[in-house]
C-alpha cells in the first residue's frame, strides 16, 4: 500500500499496476456519489469516472502533474466535472440539478494546466495506429516508452532490457523503419 501521495505519484508515473488500481478504487465511490447531483445514470457516471481517471493518469505520465498541491481526489474531481459537463452537453440534457459551483470553484484553477483533450485521430494517425498495432511486442513497448511515457534513452536503459545506449537507438531505428515500411506498403496497395 502507498501512503504518501508523492509515492503514489511516482508509482503511477512508473506504470505500477497496483497503484493504478488502488487509486482508481480509492476514489471511485466518492466520485459516483459526487456525480449523483448531475442526474447521470450509474453507468454514465462510471464511464466518466474512468475517462477522468485516464486523463488524470496521462497528465501524470506526461509530467503535467509533477507533485500534488492538493489531494488526488481534488484533481480527479476537477477533471471529472469537465467531462460531466461535456457529457451533459452531448446528451442534450438540461439538467435541473443545482450545480454546486462553490464546491468545485476552488478546483477550477487546478484544472487549467491539465489536458482534457479527447484524442480523436486524423485519418493519417489512424493509419499509423493500425500499423503500430501490427508491430512486434518489443517494438510496441519501446516506442510506447519513447513517445507515450517520454522516457530518455537512459531511462529505458535503467529498465534493464537493453545493454547499451546504442542498442536502444538502433532498435528504435529498426522499429521506426519497420513501421514506415508497413505504412508505405499498405498505401501502395490502395493506390
Amino acid at each position: 500500500m502507498y501512503r504518501r501521495t508523492d509515492d503514489i505519484l511516482q508509482a503511477l508515473k512508473q506504470g505500477d499496476d497496483s497503484a493504478f488500481r488502488q487509486v482508481y478504487e480509492a476514489n471511485r465511490d466518492k466520485f459516483l456519489n459526487f456525480s449523483k447531483r448531475y442526474q447521470l445514470t450509474e453507468e454514465d457516471a462510471v464511464d466518466i469516472y474512468q475517462d477522468a481517471y485516464i486523463v488524470f493518469y496521462n497528465n501524470i505520465v506526461e509530467g503535467k502533474i509533477k507533485q500534488f498541491t492538493s489531494s488526488i481526489s481534488t484533481y480527479l474531481f476537477s477533471i471529472g466535472k469537465h467531462l460531466i459537463y461535456d457529457r451533459m452537453r452531448k446528451n442534450k440534457l438540461e439538467s435541473e440539478a443545482n450545480f454546486d459551483f462553490a464546491v468545485v470553484k476552488d478546483e477550477e484553477s487546478l484544472a487549467s494546466p491539465l489536458d482534457f483533450e479527447d484524442v480523436s485521430l486524423t485519418e493519417e494517425q489512424l493509419l499509423v495506429q493500425k500499423h503500430f498495432g501490427s508491430l512486434g511486442k518489443k517494438c510496441q513497448e519501446l516506442l510506447t516508452l519513447f513517445y507515450y511515457r517520454g522516457y530518455t534513452i537512459k531511462d529505458i536503459l535503467d529498465l534493464g532490457d537493453y545493454n547499451s545506449e546504442n542498442v536502444v537507438k538502433s532498435q528504435k531505428s529498426r522499429c521506426m523503419k519497420n513501421l514506415r515500411d508497413r505504412i508505405n506498403a499498405s498505401s501502395k496497395q490502395y493506390e
Partner: peptide, 16 residues
C-alpha cells in the same frame, strides 16, 4: 507527432 498521438490513443484504449 502522429505516432505519439496514435500510441496515446492505443494506450488510452488499453487503460479503458
Amino acid at each position: 507527432v502522429n505516432l505519439k498521438h496514435a500510441i496515446q490513443k492505443t494506450e488510452n484504449e488499453k487503460l479503458k
